[in-house]
């Protein structure tokens, strides 16, 4: 074995690191679960998980926290992916919240997110007794995430305390915990939004078609272009949905997710378009505007 070999590419390095993180979880945790939110990051996360365990099937269930307000295309995509990969797909909705009538239009983004996502996630983890939840959050998404560990420790009651986070040196991830404590694990910590798209292109990973431009019915509200995805959308007097060519940069609950006018209908044009983008990924999300350091407050409460 001689001669100079070309070094691993940036994406292959990220891939190898993520696979390594998955395998740490396979080897060391008792009841892990893969959190799947149907977005592009979840697509990459699942793709890497399947590589990490190959040729074995995914040794953990996949959990979708369903607020009941996702885009219809997301539900269709989710169910199809579950069949394609033979996933053990678990879906949890906060029934109590639903019965109380919490909903993004009436309750506002903050309460909706807290009850239907944060609380729902805690309920689901407790219900099935998961001690490790793998999620697709990235450090480049938001300032408070830049300091998040790959193995993020949660005290009893899913509490995130910045002071209890463990130093992570080299590739030594410490996943030890006591009864009642848990871990959130983020294999995509070191990926950027660009990396995600480059990798989707490189590996031809299927994503929800909403990421690509198509004519869709939208109304403009509070500076956001909202898609009228079903009959639950309460149109205000005078509001008439317009058909516009739009796409989504991130996907969440449709009443809280702003669309971008775009004609990028495939990956190459989408990547082209991203060169000129001047707003951040989360700009289309209502929840991040709720106040300075709002993400940190959410994390303390258990939002991943």
């Amino acid at each position: 074995m001689t001669g100079i070999r070309s070094p691993m590419s940036h994406l292959r390095q990220l891939e190898a690191e993520s696979i390594f993180i998955f395998r740490e979880v396979f080897a060391e945790s008792e009841h892990p679960v893969l959190l799947y939110s149907v977005g592009k990051d979840s697509s990459v996360l699942l793709h890497l998980a399947l590589k990490a365990c190959y040729p074995a099937p995914l040794p953990m269930p996949v959990l979708h926290i369903d607020t009941t307000w996702k885009f219809r295309e997301m539900y269709a995509f989710r169910d199809q992916i579950a069949v394609t990969h033979g996933l053990n797909l678990l879906v949890h909705t906060n029934r109590e919240g639903l019965e109380r009538g919490v909903n993004p239009f009436v309750s506002g983004s903050q309460e909706h997110t807290d009850v239907m996502k944060t609380q729902a996630l805690r309920q689901a983890l407790d219900k099935w007794g998961f001690d490790v939840a793998i999620a697709g959050a990235r450090r480049d998404e938001e300032k408070s995430r830049a300091k998040e560990r790959v193995f993020s420790f949660r005290a009893a009651g899913h509490r995130w305390d910045p002071k209890q986070q463990r130093p992570e040196l080299w590739s030594l991830y410490n996943g030890r915990k006591r009864r009642g404590e848990s871990m959130r694990v983020f294999p995509l910590s070191n990926w950027t939004e660009f990396d995600i798209w480059d990798y989707i292109m490189l590996e031809r990973i299927p994503v929800v078609p909403l990421y690509f431009a198509a004519p869709r019915p939208v109304v403009e509200r509070g500076g956001l272009l909202l898609m009228v995805d079903d009959e639950r959308f309460p149109l205000r007097p005078g509001e008439v949905p317009q058909i516009r060519s739009v796409r989504f940069r991130t996907l969440g609950c449709y009443p809280l997710t702003g669309a971008t006018p775009s004609t990028a209908s495939d990956l190459p044009t989408l990547l082209q378009e991203m060169r000129t983008i001047t707003t951040s990924e989360r700009q289309g999300r209502a929840i991040d505007h709720d106040g300075a350091a709002s993400m940190e407050a959410k994390k303390r409460e258990g939002y991943f």
Partner: peptide, 24 residues
């Protein structure tokens, strides 16, 4: 202020943890 993330350190004006940043 673009990089000082946690509420505590923004108040104290010092960086109290390791933050990872990505650019190309």
């Amino acid at each position: 202020l673009l990089v000082d993330g946690l509420a505590a350190e923004r108040e104290q004006g010092i960086t109290i943890d390791v933050a990872y940043r990505y650019f190309a």
